[in-house]
């Protein structure tokens, strides 16, 4: 199967605008809101949402990034095979409502790790979750508060989110899994 584009650049922009509206509506404005992205895709999406909210409401919401690697539940099994990324929350979490942002939600394990990581850093008023793609396949009781698009690929397919900050273009594609390819570092 050829890779199939399911969302283009405009589509991504529309989704982000809708999510920004939903966030504002659900929280009755954007005061004391913090957008915390999960590297790497989630961080770029957090900055884009912050920009959209600034345009919409004139309010600069805080952004941060949260690396969940050290909290992964497969570390004892697999060891340090994932290169660490950055955690940078340059504000006091205790005063904020936190929107966690990730590009793809699948098993929920990353979000579980993110919740632990956040808890170690402070006690936000509440924590919500926004994702660009929900591709099903949950292994934990975790659901997104804001979902860009629900996609249900077959077992042999995978979703890839490409963002211009890292890939030079905005698109979401569905393609056959490449055999043997794993996103890991070896030692």
């Amino acid at each position: 199967m050829m890779p199939k584009k399911i969302i283009d650049a405009e589509g991504i922009e529309r989704i982000l605008r809708r999510i920004a509206h939903e966030i504002s509506e659900r929280n009755q404005g954007t005061r004391n809101l913090a957008l915390v992205g999960i590297p790497t895709g989630g961080v770029h999406l957090a900055h884009r949402l912050a920009r959209i909210i600034k345009e919409m409401e004139g309010n600069q919401v805080k952004t941060g990034e949260l690396d969940t690697t050290l909290y992964r539940d497969d570390l004892p099994l697999k060891g340090p095979i994932f290169r660490l990324k950055r955690t940078d929350i340059p504000f006091d979490l205790n005063d904020h409502r936190v929107i966690l942002i990730d590009d793809v939600l699948q098993t929920g394990r990353t979000i579980r790790a993110a919740l632990d990581a956040i808890t170690d850093l402070g006690r936000p008023k509440n924590i919500q979750l926004a994702v660009l793609i929900d591709r099903g396949g949950r292994e934990l009781p975790i659901q997104a508060d804001y979902t860009g698009k629900l996609v249900t690929p077959t077992g042999s397919e995978e979703i890839e989110v490409r963002l211009r900050e890292t890939d030079g273009m905005d698109e979401v594609i569905v393609q056959e899994k490449k055999p043997g390819e794993k996103p890991i570092l070896t030692r």
């Binding site: 690396d67 050290l70 909290y71 570390l75 004892p76 290169r83 660490l84 990324k85 950055r86 955690t87 940078d88 632990d116 990581a117 170690d120 850093l121 402070g122």
Partner: peptide, 23 residues
């Protein structure tokens, strides 16, 4: 060095601990 760069932030937290090497 890069890994140390990622880990340095932990020592400036109130709760200076991550569960990474539990057990």
């Amino acid at each position: 060095l890069d890994t140390a760069g990622s880990l340095k932030e932990i020592s400036s937290r109130d709760i200076k601990k991550v569960p990474t090497l539990r057990g």
